[in-house]
């Protein structure tokens, strides 16, 4: 049932946030620490175990996948409800910061890719620029 997937997701999120609160209390931060990240790791782990045990049917999966696919629209709604006016007065930090980070990141990709030429480091036969379909 779809609700099983949604409930699993909800349980992971609540559990992650509870652990995050506990970590926050433990290290003396007045806030939740990494609750969302912990919930993600928890979901990965639980889904892995359930799939191994064969306890996760297609419709349950769909309950999680539905929310996963709403990620971008929700981010759009989030963007539309932010204090952009306040950010704009912050000036060119966003542009300078964003571009600087991207430039350095690109430069580091080949450096790290060369660290361990693993089993995947074989170039795909010929890069015919595949302008693949790009549904959001």
């Amino acid at each position: 049932m779809i609700i099983y997937g949604v409930a699993l997701l909800a349980a992971c999120m609540l559990a992650g946030n509870i652990i995050g609160e506990l970590i926050g209390m433990a290290i003396g931060v007045s806030s939740n620490v990494g609750g969302v990240g912990l919930a993600m790791l928890l979901l990965v782990f639980v889904v892995y175990r359930l799939q191994k045990a064969g306890c996760l049917d297609t419709s349950s999966r769909r309950g999680v996948e539905f929310w996963s696919s709403l990620y971008i629209p929700i981010v759009v709604a989030m963007a539309a409800s932010q204090n952009v006016v306040g950010a704009v007065t912050g000036g060119p930090v966003a542009l300078v910061g964003g571009l600087a980070v991207v430039a350095v990141s690109f430069a580091l990709v080949p450096v790290i890719a060369r660290l361990g030429q693993g089993k995947y480091a074989v170039a795909l036969d010929d890069i015919e620029t595949e302008r693949g379909d790009r549904d959001a």
Binding site: L9, A10, C12, M13, G16, G35, V36, A39, M40, L41, L43, V44, V47, R61, V64, E65, F66, W67, S68, L70, Y71, P73, I74, V75, V76, A77, M78, A79, A80, S81
Partner: peptide, 18 residues
């Protein structure tokens, strides 16, 4: 819709693809 509750919920769900 864009508040932290649904946002975090959807983000956690994306981990499902891993």
């Amino acid at each position: 819709m864009g508040g932290s509750m649904l946002r975090d919920f959807a983000i956690v769900a994306t981990a499902f693809g891993v």
